[in-house]
């Protein structure tokens, strides 16, 4: 059950322009699921910062994040042994489906797909990066996936092209029970189109600025259609993962 937890940082690493923290808290780890996020208190910032769960193992949870502004800068400056306060695990993550799945991650959308790939019966991955120096976690995906395709915007690692191009190729080669994706909106939209073309259900993890993180303040609105009715649902509680066909992409 989601609650406030103090977590001790047990490991810290940097790679691909990102910081990885391993957080120790058995009670939190025990209830965390793929695609959920943690709302992390970063110093004395008024608002918590939503960061996806990248991996869970035993009593520990891994988060991987990029420094954007004051909050993530504070978090990246914390050292092993420091305590961070977390509200979580929050949101509805990726569904558990039977059969082989395709996970797609772009940039900082790559980390949350790791736990999702690990939780599947079988999984392939398409991971997209801007350039070789931003590449991350590919070895860990190779350890849990059958096929891992790396794409880059400039061709400096893997194949040059977009995540959706890689996804379209794999969708031709194999039969999937579902496609699951996290990354920039334009990537999610194109991956969803590729999945639709192949007739495979697709789930996407959306991003929006948050307040409470638990569904009460209604600030994290995302336009969706459900049962034919268009309206705002909320990324923190209804999401962050939505069925791709419910998302209003051009809003």
């Amino acid at each position: 059950m989601a609650d406030l937890f103090d977590c001790i940082i047990s490991t810290k690493q940097t790679f691909g322009g990102c910081t990885e923290l391993v957080l120790q808290n058995g009670a939190l780890a025990a209830c965390a699921a793929q695609g959920q996020f943690l709302h992390i208190q970063c110093g004395d910032q008024t608002l918590r910062r939503p960061i996806s769960i990248c991996d869970v193992a035993g009593d520990s949870l891994t988060v991987v994040f990029e420094v954007k502004g004051a909050g993530t800068e504070w978090l990246a400056a914390q050292q092993v042994g420091a305590v961070v306060n977390v509200l979580g695990p929050l949101g509805h993550g990726f569904p558990l489906v039977c059969g082989r799945i395709l996970v797609c991650g772009g940039g900082i959308g790559v980390p949350p797909m790791l736990l999702t790939a690990k939780g599947a019966e079988a999984a392939d991955a398409v991971l997209g990066f801007r350039t070789a120096s931003r590449e991350m976690l590919t070895d860990r995906f190779r350890a849990v996936c059958t096929d891992v395709v790396v794409m880059s915007d400039d061709g400096t690692c893997g194949k040059q092209g977009f995540v959706a191009d890689g996804a379209a190729e794999l969708l031709k080669k194999h039969t999937y029970a579902a496609v699951m994706a996290c990354g920039p909106k334009i990537m999610l939209k194109t991956v969803a189109q590729a999945a639709k073309k192949a007739g495979v259900p697709c789930y996407v993890s959306m991003e929006e600025r948050m307040g409470c993180g638990i569904g009460a303040c209604l600030v994290c609105a995302c336009k969706t259609t459900k049962n034919g009715e268009e309206g705002y649902r909320h990324v923190c509680k209804d999401g962050p993962v939505f069925a791709a066909e419910e998302v209003c992409w051009d809003d």
Partner: peptide, 23 residues
């Protein structure tokens, strides 16, 4: 009421701005 389009929240020094719009 659907409320306003996002983003609906901004952080400020020791505060926040919201524009939920009575959803």
């Amino acid at each position: 009421k659907d409320g306003n389009p996002p983003p609906r929240i901004a952080e400020t020094p020791s505060g926040i701005l919201n524009s939920v719009g009575l959803q």
